[in-house]
Simulated assay, not measured.
Amino acid sequence: MSSPPDHRVLVPVDVLEGESVPSTVVDAFASIPVVLLGYREIPDQTAPEQARDQYGDRVRAELEELRTVFEDVGCDVSTRLAFTHDRLKTFERVTVEESCDAVLLVNPAPVLESVLVAIRSDVNVDHIARLLRTLLDGTDLGVTLFHVAADEDDRTAGTELLETARTALVDEGVAADRIDSRVVVDGSPTTEILEAADDHDLLVVGESRPSVRRYVFRDRAERLAKRTVDPVLVIRGEYLEADDETANGETTDSETTGDEKTDSKTTDGRE
């Protein structure tokens, strides 16, 4: 069996708004290659090229400082820069282009001791477990696997689902005593996940099924990302090949962006 590909996480940061990455998050992600995306969401009437000319040097300087912070803890880090009219579409596009497994949406995290992992189905559980194992390596983070069952009749199925996820984590080398499981029954999964996240420091959510490669922030993942106060790690589903993406009728997103790979010093503008 071939080994899984190296993991990679996209970390978007609006440096012009003074957004930064807490040191607790930097330390936790030190073992995972990171792509730092310095971005700025701009008004529809502003051309990305205009924004880049006006703010590009400042964003590059701030991004370079942040890059140094990650490098100081031994993280493999690269950088991108983008001025965009739709930040989530840009995050999705760069995630695909950089072959990232997940997107980390940074919120304040003064303490990082526990992770809540919302599991919707058994699809992609092994993929999620591999990424979590990489994240947990070298940390003392505890993990709570969490599932919201539709009704009492589904509670048993939810318990079995979390046991499947727990087994996958243990098989990846995560100590069993670091893993808790919790099933709740409620008509509003989003509300229950947000309430449970209040007792944890990092929320991990993933797609419920494999999807075309472009989509990351669909349905509940997008709502959770917008409403929680915790950092959120949104894990992509297992990837489909580019040919499959084309076969499914997917085209490039409609966002307009001035985008720059700061490592290679190349720029492009996309309509």
Results as ranks from 00 to 15, higher is better:
A165V: 00
V96K: 00
V117Q: 00
G74K: 02
T228N: 05
D72H: 06
E19M: 13
E41T: 15
L136T: 09
D101I: 07
H127C: 00
E49C: 01
S3N: 13
D151F: 06
P43E: 08
R270E: 13
V229E: 15
L162R: 04
K226F: 13
A150S: 07
I193W: 04
R178L: 10
D153Q: 14
A157G: 00
D122G: 11
S23Y: 06
E65T: 09
R223M: 10
E238S: 11
P110E: 10
G38P: 04
T68R: 12
V185S: 01
E192Y: 02
S114F: 07
P189W: 10
A28Q: 02
T84P: 10
I179T: 09
A247L: 12
C100I: 02
L104T: 09
V13H: 05
P43D: 14
V106T: 15
Q45Y: 13
K265R: 14
L132W: 09
L36V: 10
S188D: 15
R67F: 03
V13Q: 06
P4N: 04
V111D: 15
S23D: 13
L116T: 05
A221M: 15
P4G: 03
D27I: 01
V35P: 04
E98V: 04
P110A: 02
I235R: 01
V25N: 04
L145F: 09
L66F: 08
D177A: 05
T90R: 09
T164Y: 09
P5F: 07
V13A: 03
I193D: 06
Q45S: 14
D151E: 14
T144R: 15
S99T: 11
V143K: 02
A102S: 14
V26P: 06
F91R: 03
D86L: 04
V185W: 08
T252E: 12
E245G: 05
E238G: 03
V216S: 00
D76E: 15
A221I: 15
A247Y: 12
K265A: 14
A129V: 07
A247D: 12
S31A: 14
E152N: 09
R236T: 11
A118H: 13
E19I: 01
D76P: 04
T68K: 05
E250I: 14
S121M: 03
D253H: 03
L104D: 11
S23K: 06
A47C: 04
A150Q: 12
V69P: 02
F217H: 05
S114R: 14
Q50F: 06
P22V: 01
L88E: 15
V204D: 08
E245M: 01
A149R: 02
D180W: 07
E92S: 03
S188R: 10
D186V: 00
T144A: 02
D137A: 15
A109M: 10
R58E: 15
S181G: 08
P33I: 08
E65C: 00
T95Q: 07
S23C: 00
E65N: 06
D27M: 07
N248M: 14
E222A: 11
S208V: 08
S78L: 06
V59W: 02
F70S: 02
S114G: 08
V111P: 00
A221P: 05
D14A: 13
G142N: 11
D57R: 12
V77N: 00
V94S: 05
G158Q: 07
R209Y: 14
D177C: 07
